Simulated assay, not measured.
Amino acid sequence: MKRVRWGIISTANIAETQIIPAILRASNAELTAIGSSNTKRREKIVSAFDIPKSYHHYDELLHDPDVDAVYIPLPNSLHKEWIMKAAQAGKHVLCEKPITLNAKDAQEVFDFCKRNDVLLMEGLMYQFHPQHQRVQEIIRSGEIGEIQLMKASFSFLLEEKEGNIRTDPKKGGGCIYDVGCYCIHAVRNILKAEPKELIAFADIDPEYGVDVSAWAFMRMDNGVKAIIDCSFEMDFREEYEIIGTKGTIKVPQAYRPDNNGGQGLIIINKNNDQRIERIYGDQYKLEIEHFSNAILNGTELAYDGANSVKNMRVIDACFESVKTGEKVSL
């Protein structure tokens, strides 16, 4: 079976702990190279995963003819630059979220990749877990009635702020970029709708100047209301809830079911009765296989450029509302 040959740009923790192991588990992918100027850390990862090729500079990896696709988990502020460099070198790109720092840049990188005949996908891996498809099936069945409200939350306590890219505004730090993007996408993805208007609020860290907690209230174009919250200052939560006229659906392990052995939970409450469905999936592996299959067989991406750009437009609107204190129409 033909496999996509992957290269990893940088030695970021998510690459070491999640994406590299996922590539090794995938049926249609193989790990070929890694590039990083952090020689000690790079050599550690090369040894741990028996990576065939190791480069000191990203550019060297991009010009390796044995690499078909690259994964980019660099700081958010560097995404645009290295997506375009990778595309120029003829490499397909899976880039960590957020794809760029604003919708204008997002549209630019997707257009650039299209002109260079390479695929680009934003790495919102959670959506590949099968629990979300099951939630949409339940909604379509009418079991919980007409949807009125959706709430989505993602938070964790960031204890070490000093020297952390998440608190560096020059590197695209802040909780909206880091975890709020999941909540926004979940609302759009599950409801199959776009926000018509929103108002957002945020707590800005006085020392670092980034949003450390944020809330947004949205009116969707299908009439459903949505509330999202994200934070670096709250206990770990990764959930969403859909409230209908006849019942509710709660997904308490929405974004990182891999922390629980890949188990997704769907809790349906209706007429004082509760049903729990457990659904398993390897979301990182599924993400790699999905993107690799598109490269090998020309299949359509489930999460394409137009969708990523729409997500960035909502993020842009949140920042605009936080800055002005006003409601923003999209």
Rank of each mutant, 00 (worst) to 15 (best):
N260S: 14
Q133P: 08
R219M: 11
I315F: 10
M312S: 09
L61N: 02
C230P: 03
A86P: 02
A302V: 13
K225D: 15
K161D: 13
L149I: 15
F128Y: 14
I227N: 02
L101S: 08
F49S: 02
L124G: 02
L101T: 06
M125Y: 07
A202K: 00
H185S: 12
T100A: 11
T167S: 14
P73F: 02
F217N: 05
T17N: 15
G209S: 07
A214H: 00
I138V: 15
I9K: 01
V328D: 08
A103C: 08
I139Q: 11
Y71K: 00
T39S: 14
E122K: 05
E160N: 15
N76P: 06
I72V: 10
T100D: 09
R42Y: 07
G142F: 06
R188Q: 15
S329E: 15
G90Y: 04
S231R: 00
I249Y: 02
V109Q: 04
I14Y: 11
K170E: 12
S155Q: 06
A216L: 03
S77C: 11
L61P: 00
K80S: 11
D205Y: 04
E287K: 02
V4Y: 03
R41L: 13
N272C: 12
W215H: 06
K97E: 06
N297S: 10
I147F: 09
P130G: 13
R41K: 15
F156V: 09
P52W: 05
D105N: 08
L296Q: 08
A226R: 00
R237M: 11
R278L: 12
I267M: 08
I249K: 02
A106W: 05
S47A: 13
Y177G: 05
S292Y: 03
D229N: 12
M150D: 09
V314P: 04
E30L: 14
S153K: 10
V187P: 02
Y58N: 04
Q283H: 07
Y303R: 03
I83A: 03
M312A: 10
S36E: 00
Q283N: 11
E30Q: 15
Q274D: 09
N272I: 09
V135L: 09
F236Y: 11
N28A: 14
K270P: 05
K327V: 15
Y240A: 04
C113L: 08
G180N: 07
S54N: 10
I249S: 01
H132Q: 10
P75K: 07
N293F: 13
P130E: 07
A226D: 03
S47W: 00
K114C: 14
V212T: 04
D50E: 14
I228E: 01
Y182F: 13
A216I: 01
Y255P: 00
D111L: 13
I315L: 13
P206A: 12
V93K: 00
I19C: 01
E277T: 07
P21A: 12
F112V: 04
S329D: 15
G145Y: 04
V46C: 01
K250S: 09
A317C: 13
L198Q: 01
Q283S: 06
L330E: 10
Y58D: 01
W82L: 04
D205L: 03
